[in-house]
Amino acid sequence: MAVTLAPGTAAAPGRPRPVTRRGPRRATPGRIVAWTYLGIVVLVTLFPFYWILRTALSNNYKLATHPSSPLPVGFTWGAFERALGIASTAQAQAQGGSGASLDIPLYLRNSLIYASVQTVLIVLFSAAAAYAFSRLHWRGRNLVFGVLISALMVPGVFTLLPNFVFVKDVGLNNTFAGLILPGGLFQAFTLFFLRQFMLGLSNEIEEAAIIDGAGPLRIFLRVVLPMSSAPIATVSLLMFVNAWNDYMWPLLVTNSPATEPLTLALGVFKQSSPQAAPDWAGLMAAALIAALPMLLLFIAFGRRIVNSIGFSGIK
């Protein structure tokens, strides 16, 4: 109600005032409070990341002597060496490692295969289907689309157990196929997102291509796909992050080092380390290595990721 009132009253006398106000707004108490608040938010957001680094560069035994030191305690690369399996067992135990090894390179490879193959598949198949649901005309198109999109309603929780049983029944547990396929063929969000974009493409270029003799396949590959490169990149990033961070599905379908992704290995590693004194330095080093690809992605595509969040939600 206040909203409908405001523009009307604003029309006549209001012009000069915002202009005069704008000058001194630089350092009003309100702005100071706002920036202080943002400072705290940023601090709370970033501090754990710093603490990962600080702990990972510490000697695990000496951590206990200076638990609140802001700098690494007894600086050493030992934790990274343990996490990467370079250190010998004796070396590891001397620095407070459990001696249990975590074969990070192997799990890193598994995570890479899982996340990248799934991303490529889901984006490819979603883009193909999105094209069929947006640019091609065929009977039943909207009905089929509506049925597929209904998958948005079913929470992941509910399909997890039956999917696990199915994957196990067809013998795909502990394989990359079992890990990748459930999320690699169809996800309602990617399909919906790409279709929305493709619906908005103008007809002209497509018509020009038709005049030039291109069939639907060529139009898809040479016109619509290139024109959709921005949303495709966005969706690829989001899917890659999701798959990289996935925990529960890998937990259900894999239990062999040959296929376990890094997130899972980290969780299990933590649980298997002795309850009394976990190797926090080693764990943090491993966590940092696991998070590194995401941090690199973030540095490379930060702006795109930030902007994509807005439009992933608002549609």
Binding site: G183, L185, F186
Partner: peptide, 14 residues
């Protein structure tokens, strides 16, 4: 592919 994925990993498990 999308329809197959939907049928196998969403509709059927539901």
């Amino acid at each position: 592919p999308a329809v197959a994925g939907f049928a196998i990993f969403y509709a059927y498990p539901t």
